[in-house]
Design a protein around this nucleic acid. Structure first.
Lengths: 222, 222
DNA sequence: GTGACATTCAAACAATTGTTTCCAATCACG
DNA sequence: CGTGATTGGAAACAATTGTTTGAATGTCAC
Protein backbone atom coordinates (compact mmCIF):
# COMPACT_ATOMS: atom_id res chain seq x y z
CA UNK A 1 0.00 0.00 0.00
CA UNK A 2 2.86 2.33 0.81
CA UNK A 3 6.06 2.18 -1.17
CA UNK A 4 7.47 5.57 -0.18
CA UNK A 5 8.67 5.05 3.39
CA UNK A 6 9.74 8.62 3.76
CA UNK A 7 6.33 10.25 3.81
CA UNK A 8 4.63 7.41 5.62
CA UNK A 9 7.27 7.30 8.32
CA UNK A 10 7.27 11.02 8.76
CA UNK A 11 3.52 10.98 9.23
CA UNK A 12 3.70 8.17 11.76
CA UNK A 13 6.54 9.78 13.69
CA UNK A 14 4.72 13.07 13.96
CA UNK A 15 1.30 11.56 14.59
CA UNK A 16 2.38 9.41 17.51
CA UNK A 17 3.97 12.34 19.28
CA UNK A 18 0.98 14.62 18.79
CA UNK A 19 -1.49 11.89 19.70
CA UNK A 20 0.44 11.18 22.87
CA UNK A 21 0.57 14.84 23.77
CA UNK A 22 -3.00 15.85 23.08
CA UNK A 23 -5.14 12.82 22.45
CA UNK A 24 -6.74 11.68 19.23
CA UNK A 25 -9.73 13.94 18.87
CA UNK A 26 -7.70 16.98 19.84
CA UNK A 27 -5.12 16.34 17.15
CA UNK A 28 -6.22 17.31 13.65
CA UNK A 29 -4.81 15.93 10.47
CA UNK A 30 -3.70 19.42 9.58
CA UNK A 31 -1.74 19.53 12.80
CA UNK A 32 0.05 16.37 11.86
CA UNK A 33 0.69 17.10 8.21
CA UNK A 34 1.88 20.64 8.76
CA UNK A 35 4.33 19.60 11.46
CA UNK A 36 5.46 16.61 9.40
CA UNK A 37 5.83 18.84 6.35
CA UNK A 38 3.73 16.59 4.15
CA UNK A 39 0.59 17.35 2.23
CA UNK A 40 -2.74 17.11 3.96
CA UNK A 41 -4.06 14.58 1.49
CA UNK A 42 -1.13 12.27 2.15
CA UNK A 43 -2.74 10.87 5.26
CA UNK A 44 -5.90 9.82 3.51
CA UNK A 45 -3.89 8.62 0.57
CA UNK A 46 -1.51 6.41 2.51
CA UNK A 47 -3.72 5.31 5.38
CA UNK A 48 -7.25 5.79 4.13
CA UNK A 49 -8.66 7.60 7.14
CA UNK A 50 -7.75 9.08 10.47
CA UNK A 51 -9.00 5.99 12.25
CA UNK A 52 -6.69 3.84 10.17
CA UNK A 53 -3.80 6.16 10.94
CA UNK A 54 -4.43 5.77 14.64
CA UNK A 55 -4.43 2.00 14.31
CA UNK A 56 -1.24 2.15 12.23
CA UNK A 57 0.46 4.14 14.96
CA UNK A 58 -0.44 1.43 17.43
CA UNK A 59 0.53 -1.38 15.11
CA UNK A 60 4.00 0.03 14.72
CA UNK A 61 4.52 -0.44 18.45
CA UNK A 62 2.46 -3.50 19.14
CA UNK A 63 3.57 -5.67 16.23
CA UNK A 64 7.23 -5.76 17.28
CA UNK A 65 6.21 -5.99 20.90
CA UNK A 66 3.96 -9.01 20.58
CA UNK A 67 6.50 -10.77 18.40
CA UNK A 68 9.29 -10.13 20.87
CA UNK A 69 7.03 -11.01 23.75
CA UNK A 70 6.03 -14.35 22.30
CA UNK A 71 9.61 -15.40 21.60
CA UNK A 72 10.62 -14.31 25.09
CA UNK A 73 7.85 -16.43 26.55
CA UNK A 74 8.96 -19.30 24.32
CA UNK A 75 12.46 -19.09 25.75
CA UNK A 76 11.10 -18.83 29.26
CA UNK A 77 8.93 -21.90 28.82
CA UNK A 78 11.80 -23.82 27.27
CA UNK A 79 14.11 -22.98 30.15
CA UNK A 80 11.58 -24.15 32.73
CA UNK A 81 10.64 -27.13 30.59
CA UNK A 82 7.22 -28.10 31.86
CA UNK A 83 7.78 -26.54 35.25
CA UNK A 84 6.09 -23.50 36.67
CA UNK A 85 7.64 -20.14 35.82
CA UNK A 86 7.94 -17.94 38.92
CA UNK A 87 5.82 -14.81 38.92
CA UNK A 88 8.86 -12.57 39.25
CA UNK A 89 10.35 -13.95 36.06
CA UNK A 90 7.11 -13.47 34.17
CA UNK A 91 6.86 -9.87 35.27
CA UNK A 92 10.51 -9.32 34.52
CA UNK A 93 10.10 -10.68 31.02
CA UNK A 94 7.12 -8.52 30.27
CA UNK A 95 8.87 -5.45 31.63
CA UNK A 96 11.92 -6.16 29.52
CA UNK A 97 9.85 -6.50 26.35
CA UNK A 98 7.92 -3.33 27.07
CA UNK A 99 11.16 -1.47 27.62
CA UNK A 100 13.01 -2.85 24.63
CA UNK A 101 10.55 -2.11 21.87
CA UNK A 102 10.42 1.67 21.99
CA UNK A 103 14.03 1.89 23.12
CA UNK A 104 15.06 2.04 19.50
CA UNK A 105 13.30 5.34 19.08
CA UNK A 106 13.63 6.41 22.70
CA UNK A 107 9.91 6.80 22.95
CA UNK A 108 8.72 4.68 25.84
CA UNK A 109 6.87 7.69 27.13
CA UNK A 110 4.92 7.95 23.90
CA UNK A 111 4.21 4.25 23.86
CA UNK A 112 2.81 4.28 27.37
CA UNK A 113 0.82 7.39 26.83
CA UNK A 114 -0.77 5.83 23.79
CA UNK A 115 -1.66 2.73 25.77
CA UNK A 116 -3.23 4.89 28.44
CA UNK A 117 -5.24 6.76 25.86
CA UNK A 118 -6.37 3.55 24.22
CA UNK A 119 -7.90 2.43 27.48
CA UNK A 120 -9.39 5.68 28.63
CA UNK A 121 -10.48 7.13 25.34
CA UNK A 122 -13.66 5.08 25.25
CA UNK A 123 -13.08 5.03 21.51
CA UNK A 124 -14.82 1.78 20.84
CA UNK A 125 -12.91 0.92 17.73
CA UNK A 126 -9.46 1.25 19.28
CA UNK A 127 -10.09 -1.02 22.22
CA UNK A 128 -11.71 -3.55 19.93
CA UNK A 129 -8.85 -3.36 17.47
CA UNK A 130 -6.21 -3.88 20.12
CA UNK A 131 -8.17 -6.63 21.78
CA UNK A 132 -8.71 -8.54 18.55
CA UNK A 133 -5.24 -7.98 17.19
CA UNK A 134 -3.09 -8.43 20.25
CA UNK A 135 -5.33 -10.09 22.81
CA UNK A 136 -3.69 -13.47 22.32
CA UNK A 137 -0.41 -12.31 23.83
CA UNK A 138 -2.18 -11.08 26.92
CA UNK A 139 -4.18 -14.30 27.16
CA UNK A 140 -1.03 -16.37 26.99
CA UNK A 141 0.58 -14.23 29.66
CA UNK A 142 -2.37 -14.49 32.04
CA UNK A 143 -2.39 -18.27 31.64
CA UNK A 144 1.25 -18.40 32.70
CA UNK A 145 0.46 -16.14 35.63
CA UNK A 146 -2.31 -18.52 36.56
CA UNK A 147 0.20 -21.37 36.82
CA UNK A 148 2.53 -19.18 38.86
CA UNK A 149 -0.14 -18.20 41.37
CA UNK A 150 -2.23 -21.33 41.91
CA UNK A 151 -3.43 -20.21 45.31
CA UNK A 152 -5.29 -17.24 43.82
CA UNK A 153 -8.93 -17.66 42.77
CA UNK A 154 -9.33 -17.01 39.06
CA UNK A 155 -11.46 -13.92 39.51
CA UNK A 156 -9.11 -12.49 42.09
CA UNK A 157 -6.13 -12.96 39.82
CA UNK A 158 -8.01 -11.35 36.94
CA UNK A 159 -8.74 -8.26 38.95
CA UNK A 160 -5.28 -8.00 40.45
CA UNK A 161 -3.69 -8.22 37.01
CA UNK A 162 -5.83 -5.32 35.92
CA UNK A 163 -5.05 -3.44 39.08
CA UNK A 164 -1.38 -3.70 38.20
CA UNK A 165 -2.04 -2.89 34.57
CA UNK A 166 -3.63 0.30 35.82
CA UNK A 167 -0.66 1.06 38.02
CA UNK A 168 1.82 0.72 35.21
CA UNK A 169 -0.14 2.46 32.48
CA UNK A 170 -1.28 5.30 34.71
CA UNK A 171 2.18 5.93 36.08
CA UNK A 172 4.15 5.66 32.89
CA UNK A 173 1.63 7.51 30.76
CA UNK A 174 1.54 10.43 33.15
CA UNK A 175 5.24 10.16 33.76
CA UNK A 176 6.21 13.63 32.65
CA UNK A 177 3.92 15.45 35.03
CA UNK A 178 4.72 13.15 37.93
CA UNK A 179 8.43 13.34 37.26
CA UNK A 180 8.32 17.11 37.42
CA UNK A 181 6.65 17.02 40.82
CA UNK A 182 8.96 14.34 42.13
CA UNK A 183 12.02 16.18 40.91
CA UNK A 184 11.13 19.51 42.43
CA UNK A 185 9.84 18.03 45.68
CA UNK A 186 12.51 15.42 46.29
CA UNK A 187 15.33 16.70 44.13
CA UNK A 188 15.61 13.31 42.58
CA UNK A 189 15.99 12.67 38.90
CA UNK A 190 13.78 9.76 37.95
CA UNK A 191 14.47 7.67 34.91
CA UNK A 192 12.11 5.13 33.47
CA UNK A 193 14.28 2.30 34.67
CA UNK A 194 14.25 3.71 38.18
CA UNK A 195 10.52 3.63 38.00
CA UNK A 196 10.45 0.05 36.82
CA UNK A 197 12.76 -0.91 39.67
CA UNK A 198 10.39 0.80 42.07
CA UNK A 199 7.41 -0.90 40.49
CA UNK A 200 8.72 -4.45 40.82
CA UNK A 201 8.38 -5.03 44.57
CA UNK A 202 5.08 -3.17 44.61
CA UNK A 203 3.57 -5.31 41.89
CA UNK A 204 4.85 -8.54 43.42
CA UNK A 205 3.51 -7.58 46.83
CA UNK A 206 0.17 -6.60 45.32
CA UNK A 207 -0.20 -9.90 43.51
CA UNK A 208 0.71 -11.80 46.66
CA UNK A 209 -1.52 -9.76 48.96
CA UNK A 210 -3.80 -11.72 51.32
CA UNK A 211 -7.25 -12.48 49.98
CA UNK A 212 -10.02 -10.05 50.89
CA UNK A 213 -12.41 -11.03 53.63
CA UNK A 214 -15.60 -12.87 52.69
CA UNK A 215 -15.52 -13.54 48.98
CA UNK A 216 -18.79 -12.55 47.36
CA UNK A 217 -19.39 -15.43 44.94
CA UNK A 218 -19.31 -18.06 47.67
CA UNK A 219 -22.31 -17.23 49.80
CA UNK A 220 -24.05 -13.96 49.20
CA UNK A 221 -26.36 -13.58 46.25
CA UNK A 222 -26.83 -9.85 45.97
CA UNK B 1 -25.80 32.68 38.53
CA UNK B 2 -28.56 30.16 37.99
CA UNK B 3 -31.91 30.52 39.65
CA UNK B 4 -33.76 27.99 37.54
CA UNK B 5 -32.35 24.69 38.69
CA UNK B 6 -34.37 22.78 36.16
CA UNK B 7 -32.40 23.63 33.02
CA UNK B 8 -29.03 23.85 34.68
CA UNK B 9 -29.45 20.54 36.44
CA UNK B 10 -30.73 18.85 33.32
CA UNK B 11 -27.69 20.05 31.43
CA UNK B 12 -25.30 18.87 34.13
CA UNK B 13 -27.01 15.50 34.47
CA UNK B 14 -26.87 14.85 30.76
CA UNK B 15 -23.41 16.27 30.26
CA UNK B 16 -21.74 14.16 32.92
CA UNK B 17 -23.16 10.96 31.50
CA UNK B 18 -22.15 11.79 27.93
CA UNK B 19 -18.73 13.03 28.99
CA UNK B 20 -18.14 9.84 30.93
CA UNK B 21 -19.26 7.71 28.01
CA UNK B 22 -17.43 9.40 25.18
CA UNK B 23 -14.95 11.91 26.54
CA UNK B 24 -15.05 15.68 26.33
CA UNK B 25 -13.94 16.39 22.80
CA UNK B 26 -16.16 13.65 21.42
CA UNK B 27 -19.25 15.08 23.06
CA UNK B 28 -20.70 18.10 21.31
CA UNK B 29 -22.90 20.69 22.93
CA UNK B 30 -25.63 19.74 20.49
CA UNK B 31 -25.37 16.19 21.75
CA UNK B 32 -25.91 17.37 25.26
CA UNK B 33 -28.64 19.90 24.65
CA UNK B 34 -30.68 17.70 22.37
CA UNK B 35 -30.61 14.80 24.81
CA UNK B 36 -31.32 17.13 27.71
CA UNK B 37 -34.16 18.73 25.75
CA UNK B 38 -32.88 22.22 26.29
CA UNK B 39 -31.91 24.87 23.80
CA UNK B 40 -28.40 24.86 22.41
CA UNK B 41 -27.69 28.36 23.61
CA UNK B 42 -28.64 27.41 27.15
CA UNK B 43 -25.18 26.00 27.82
CA UNK B 44 -23.37 29.17 26.89
CA UNK B 45 -25.99 31.21 28.67
CA UNK B 46 -25.78 29.39 31.97
CA UNK B 47 -22.15 28.30 31.99
CA UNK B 48 -20.39 30.64 29.58
CA UNK B 49 -18.50 28.06 27.60
CA UNK B 50 -17.97 24.36 27.12
CA UNK B 51 -14.81 24.49 29.22
CA UNK B 52 -16.75 26.06 32.08
CA UNK B 53 -19.42 23.38 31.72
CA UNK B 54 -16.79 20.67 32.08
CA UNK B 55 -15.44 22.31 35.21
CA UNK B 56 -18.95 22.68 36.59
CA UNK B 57 -19.54 18.98 36.09
CA UNK B 58 -16.41 18.25 38.13
CA UNK B 59 -17.23 20.80 40.78
CA UNK B 60 -20.59 19.17 41.42
CA UNK B 61 -18.74 16.03 42.45
CA UNK B 62 -15.58 17.40 43.96
CA UNK B 63 -17.07 20.16 46.11
CA UNK B 64 -19.15 17.80 48.24
CA UNK B 65 -16.34 15.27 48.23
CA UNK B 66 -13.62 17.55 49.53
CA UNK B 67 -15.93 18.97 52.17
CA UNK B 68 -16.90 15.54 53.36
CA UNK B 69 -13.31 14.36 53.15
CA UNK B 70 -11.99 17.20 55.26
CA UNK B 71 -14.55 16.69 58.00
CA UNK B 72 -13.88 12.95 57.95
CA UNK B 73 -10.17 13.64 58.38
CA UNK B 74 -11.01 16.08 61.17
CA UNK B 75 -12.90 13.36 63.00
CA UNK B 76 -10.11 10.88 62.40
CA UNK B 77 -7.50 13.24 63.75
CA UNK B 78 -9.65 14.05 66.75
CA UNK B 79 -10.15 10.38 67.56
CA UNK B 80 -6.42 9.68 67.42
CA UNK B 81 -5.68 12.93 69.22
CA UNK B 82 -2.09 13.62 68.37
CA UNK B 83 -1.29 9.98 67.65
CA UNK B 84 -0.56 8.39 64.33
CA UNK B 85 -3.53 7.27 62.24
CA UNK B 86 -2.99 3.78 60.85
CA UNK B 87 -2.71 3.51 57.08
CA UNK B 88 -5.70 1.19 56.86
CA UNK B 89 -7.93 3.76 58.50
CA UNK B 90 -6.74 6.49 56.20
CA UNK B 91 -7.46 4.40 53.14
CA UNK B 92 -10.76 3.31 54.57
CA UNK B 93 -11.78 6.91 55.17
CA UNK B 94 -10.88 7.99 51.69
CA UNK B 95 -12.71 5.04 50.16
CA UNK B 96 -15.80 5.81 52.22
CA UNK B 97 -15.86 9.43 51.10
CA UNK B 98 -15.35 8.51 47.47
CA UNK B 99 -18.21 6.03 47.71
CA UNK B 100 -20.61 8.24 49.60
CA UNK B 101 -20.62 11.30 47.40
CA UNK B 102 -22.01 9.90 44.19
CA UNK B 103 -24.15 7.39 46.05
CA UNK B 104 -26.93 9.93 46.14
CA UNK B 105 -27.23 9.84 42.39
CA UNK B 106 -26.00 6.27 42.00
CA UNK B 107 -23.29 7.46 39.70
CA UNK B 108 -19.99 6.30 41.11
CA UNK B 109 -19.16 4.89 37.71
CA UNK B 110 -19.57 8.32 36.14
CA UNK B 111 -17.54 9.96 38.86
CA UNK B 112 -14.63 7.58 38.42
CA UNK B 113 -14.73 7.73 34.68
CA UNK B 114 -14.56 11.50 34.86
CA UNK B 115 -11.57 11.31 37.15
CA UNK B 116 -9.87 8.96 34.78
CA UNK B 117 -10.55 11.27 31.87
CA UNK B 118 -9.28 14.25 33.79
CA UNK B 119 -5.93 12.55 34.17
CA UNK B 120 -5.60 11.01 30.76
CA UNK B 121 -7.26 13.58 28.59
CA UNK B 122 -4.20 15.79 28.62
CA UNK B 123 -6.67 18.68 28.71
CA UNK B 124 -4.33 21.09 30.36
CA UNK B 125 -6.99 23.31 31.82
CA UNK B 126 -8.77 20.49 33.61
CA UNK B 127 -5.76 19.12 35.43
CA UNK B 128 -4.76 22.61 36.44
CA UNK B 129 -8.26 23.42 37.60
CA UNK B 130 -8.53 20.30 39.72
CA UNK B 131 -5.05 20.74 41.12
CA UNK B 132 -5.62 24.33 42.13
CA UNK B 133 -9.13 23.83 43.40
CA UNK B 134 -8.85 20.55 45.22
CA UNK B 135 -5.14 19.93 45.63
CA UNK B 136 -5.19 20.87 49.29
CA UNK B 137 -7.26 17.84 50.23
CA UNK B 138 -4.78 15.55 48.54
CA UNK B 139 -1.86 17.31 50.19
CA UNK B 140 -3.43 16.90 53.60
CA UNK B 141 -4.05 13.23 52.91
CA UNK B 142 -0.49 12.54 51.79
CA UNK B 143 0.87 14.23 54.90
CA UNK B 144 -1.19 11.88 57.08
CA UNK B 145 0.03 8.95 55.03
CA UNK B 146 3.56 10.14 55.66
CA UNK B 147 3.01 9.93 59.40
CA UNK B 148 1.47 6.49 59.02
CA UNK B 149 4.40 5.10 57.03
CA UNK B 150 7.52 6.58 58.63
CA UNK B 151 9.76 3.80 57.40
CA UNK B 152 9.14 4.76 53.76
CA UNK B 153 11.50 7.25 52.09
CA UNK B 154 9.58 10.29 50.95
CA UNK B 155 10.18 9.69 47.28
CA UNK B 156 9.18 6.06 47.57
CA UNK B 157 5.95 6.94 49.30
CA UNK B 158 5.21 9.56 46.67
CA UNK B 159 5.55 7.06 43.89
CA UNK B 160 3.62 4.33 45.64
CA UNK B 161 0.73 6.67 46.33
CA UNK B 162 0.56 7.44 42.65
CA UNK B 163 0.88 3.79 41.78
CA UNK B 164 -2.20 3.16 43.84
CA UNK B 165 -3.98 6.18 42.48
CA UNK B 166 -3.43 4.66 39.07
CA UNK B 167 -4.78 1.34 40.20
CA UNK B 168 -7.97 2.79 41.53
CA UNK B 169 -8.68 5.27 38.77
CA UNK B 170 -7.78 2.89 35.98
CA UNK B 171 -9.87 0.09 37.40
CA UNK B 172 -12.94 2.04 38.37
CA UNK B 173 -12.96 4.25 35.30
CA UNK B 174 -12.77 1.28 32.97
CA UNK B 175 -15.12 -0.68 35.16
CA UNK B 176 -17.80 -1.37 32.61
CA UNK B 177 -15.53 -3.01 30.09
CA UNK B 178 -13.67 -5.00 32.73
CA UNK B 179 -16.90 -6.03 34.39
CA UNK B 180 -18.19 -7.41 31.12
CA UNK B 181 -15.10 -9.55 30.70
CA UNK B 182 -15.11 -10.71 34.28
CA UNK B 183 -18.77 -11.54 34.16
CA UNK B 184 -18.59 -13.62 31.01
CA UNK B 185 -15.32 -15.32 31.98
CA UNK B 186 -16.00 -16.03 35.62
CA UNK B 187 -19.76 -15.78 35.76
CA UNK B 188 -19.47 -13.40 38.62
CA UNK B 189 -21.44 -10.24 39.01
CA UNK B 190 -19.13 -7.55 40.29
CA UNK B 191 -20.40 -4.53 42.16
CA UNK B 192 -18.38 -1.48 42.93
CA UNK B 193 -18.24 -2.37 46.57
CA UNK B 194 -16.91 -5.81 45.74
CA UNK B 195 -14.16 -4.08 43.85
CA UNK B 196 -13.33 -1.80 46.72
CA UNK B 197 -13.15 -4.81 49.05
CA UNK B 198 -10.79 -6.48 46.61
CA UNK B 199 -8.72 -3.35 46.33
CA UNK B 200 -8.09 -2.91 50.03
CA UNK B 201 -5.62 -5.74 50.72
CA UNK B 202 -3.88 -5.09 47.44
CA UNK B 203 -3.33 -1.41 48.17
CA UNK B 204 -2.17 -2.09 51.72
CA UNK B 205 0.25 -4.77 50.55
CA UNK B 206 1.56 -2.49 47.81
CA UNK B 207 2.21 0.36 50.22
CA UNK B 208 3.96 -2.01 52.63
CA UNK B 209 6.01 -3.76 49.97
CA UNK B 210 9.74 -4.14 50.66
CA UNK B 211 11.94 -1.39 49.34
CA UNK B 212 13.48 -1.93 45.92
CA UNK B 213 17.10 -3.06 45.79
CA UNK B 214 19.77 -0.42 45.61
CA UNK B 215 18.00 2.86 45.97
CA UNK B 216 19.65 5.48 43.82
CA UNK B 217 20.13 8.29 46.33
CA UNK B 218 20.10 6.28 49.51
CA UNK B 219 22.07 3.55 51.23
CA UNK B 220 20.22 0.50 52.42
CA UNK B 221 21.92 -2.17 54.50
CA UNK B 222 20.67 -5.69 53.81
C1' DG C 1 -51.93 46.14 33.18
C1' DT C 2 -46.84 48.08 32.81
C1' DG C 3 -42.11 47.86 33.07
C1' DA C 4 -37.94 45.36 34.18
C1' DC C 5 -35.67 41.43 34.30
C1' DA C 6 -34.23 36.66 33.46
C1' DT C 7 -34.73 32.89 30.54
C1' DT C 8 -35.67 30.42 26.21
C1' DC C 9 -35.63 29.96 21.39
C1' DA C 10 -34.50 29.65 16.27
C1' DA C 11 -31.16 31.20 13.33
C1' DA C 12 -26.84 32.50 11.78
C1' DC C 13 -21.97 32.99 12.75
C1' DA C 14 -17.04 31.99 11.89
C1' DA C 15 -13.86 28.47 12.46
C1' DT C 16 -12.31 23.87 12.07
C1' DT C 17 -12.92 19.22 11.02
C1' DG C 18 -12.04 14.80 7.79
C1' DT C 19 -12.33 13.85 3.16
C1' DT C 20 -12.31 14.37 -1.96
C1' DT C 21 -11.11 16.34 -6.38
C1' DC C 22 -8.31 17.50 -10.13
C1' DC C 23 -4.08 18.59 -12.14
C1' DA C 24 1.02 18.64 -12.28
C1' DA C 25 5.12 16.14 -11.24
C1' DT C 26 7.49 11.85 -11.01
C1' DC C 27 8.82 7.38 -11.97
C1' DA C 28 9.42 2.71 -14.18
C1' DC C 29 9.94 0.54 -18.32
C1' DG C 30 9.73 -0.77 -23.31
C1' DC D 1 12.69 9.11 -25.81
C1' DG D 2 7.83 8.27 -25.01
C1' DT D 3 4.07 6.16 -22.74
C1' DG D 4 1.24 5.17 -18.85
C1' DA D 5 0.52 4.46 -14.23
C1' DT D 6 1.62 6.17 -9.61
C1' DT D 7 2.40 9.82 -6.19
C1' DG D 8 2.58 14.68 -4.88
C1' DG D 9 0.10 19.06 -3.84
C1' DA D 10 -3.36 23.26 -3.62
C1' DA D 11 -7.96 23.98 -3.40
C1' DA D 12 -12.56 23.01 -2.60
C1' DC D 13 -15.95 20.02 -0.33
C1' DA D 14 -19.59 19.01 2.96
C1' DA D 15 -20.26 18.42 7.65
C1' DT D 16 -19.73 19.67 12.35
C1' DT D 17 -17.93 22.39 15.90
C1' DG D 18 -18.47 26.25 19.82
C1' DT D 19 -20.32 30.61 20.07
C1' DT D 20 -23.22 34.77 19.34
C1' DT D 21 -27.26 37.29 18.07
C1' DG D 22 -31.82 39.33 18.52
C1' DA D 23 -36.38 38.52 19.03
C1' DA D 24 -39.95 35.95 21.75
C1' DT D 25 -41.42 34.33 26.08
C1' DG D 26 -41.77 33.93 30.75
C1' DT D 27 -41.84 35.84 35.63
C1' DC D 28 -42.34 38.91 39.33
C1' DA D 29 -42.78 43.69 41.56
C1' DC D 30 -45.35 47.65 41.37
Amino acid sequence: MAQQPDTVTRILDTAEVLFAERGFAETSLRNITSKAKVNLAAVNYHFGSKKALIQAVFARYLDPFTERFHTALDELEARHAGGVIPLEELLETMARCVLEVPAERNSLKVFMRLLGLAYSQAQGHLRRYIQEEYGSAFTRFTELVRLATPELPDAERFWRLHFMLGTVIFTLSGLDALRDIAEQDYGEHVGVRDLVRRLRPVVVAAMNAPLPESLPSQREAG
